[in-house]
Amino acid sequence: MRNSYISRRIASFGYAFSGIAAFVKSEPHARIHVIATVAVVVAGCWYKLSTAEWMWVILAITLVWVTEMFNTVVEKIMDHLSPEYHPKVKWIKDVAAGAVLVAAIAAAIIGGLIFAPRIF
């Protein structure tokens, strides 16, 4: 019984990685996030960020990725439930997209506070 529990837990990681891969393959914004993430990590290595700075950068990157993934899920669910235009569906999708914008602005501010003094 224990082995089946462990194998199910291991399999759940596979499902999660499959979900991330499906997100990156299917969503243009996800590919932009991949490029931005790589650029920020390279810049962080180049400028030798401190541990505390890395914590903020990782938190900002994660916040943007998670909100973008949830936004995508909300959009896909709403498109499935209501293929035709509906003002309430538009509102739901707009608010989900707004969450991504808030996260992206916060990430840009964090990045600016950390990288601007080094660049300028």
Rank of each mutant, 00 (worst) to 15 (best):
M1E: 11
M1H: 12
M1T: 07
R2L: 10
R2G: 12
R2A: 12
R2H: 13
R2D: 13
N3P: 00
N3K: 08
S4T: 14
S4L: 11
S4F: 13
R9T: 10
I10P: 01
I10D: 08
A11L: 14
S12M: 04
F13T: 01
A16E: 09
A16Q: 13
A16C: 12
F17D: 00
G19D: 07
G19H: 08
G19R: 11
A21K: 09
A22T: 08
F23Q: 00
V24S: 04
E27C: 06
P28E: 06
A30N: 03
I32T: 08
V34T: 03
V34S: 03
I35D: 03
T37D: 01
A39G: 07
A39D: 08
A39H: 03
V40E: 11
V40N: 07
V40A: 15
V41H: 02
V41E: 01
A43F: 11
A43W: 06
A43G: 05
G44V: 10
C45H: 10
W46K: 06
W46H: 11
Y47G: 00
Y47E: 03
Y47I: 00
K48N: 12
K48H: 15
L49S: 03
S50E: 07
S50Y: 05
T51I: 10
A52F: 13
A52I: 10
M55A: 14
M55R: 15
W56A: 13
V57A: 08
I58V: 15
L59S: 10
A60M: 14
I61L: 15
I61M: 09
I61A: 05
L63T: 11
L63D: 11
L63M: 13
L63Y: 08
W65K: 02
M69S: 06
M69W: 14
M69C: 07
F70S: 01
F70E: 01
N71P: 00
N71T: 02
N71W: 01
N71R: 12
N71Y: 02
T72N: 11
V74F: 07
V74E: 02
E75K: 14
K76E: 15
I77V: 14
I77L: 13
M78G: 02
D79H: 14
H80C: 07
L81F: 10
S82L: 12
P83G: 06
P83Q: 08
Y85L: 04
K88I: 09
K88V: 09
K90N: 13
W91A: 12
I92E: 01
I92G: 00
K93G: 06
D94S: 11
V95M: 01
A96E: 01
A97F: 01
A99W: 04
A99G: 15
V100F: 05
V100Q: 06
L101K: 05
L101P: 00
V102L: 13
V102N: 02
V102P: 07
A103N: 04
A103R: 01
I105M: 11
I105A: 13
I105F: 15
I105C: 11
A106T: 07
A106M: 05
A106W: 12
A107F: 10
I109L: 10
I110Y: 11
I110C: 09
G111K: 04
G112K: 04
L113W: 13
I114N: 00
I114G: 00
F115A: 06
F115N: 03
A116M: 08
A116V: 11
P117S: 09
P117M: 10
P117K: 08
P117Y: 13
I119K: 02
F120T: 02
F120E: 04
F120M: 12
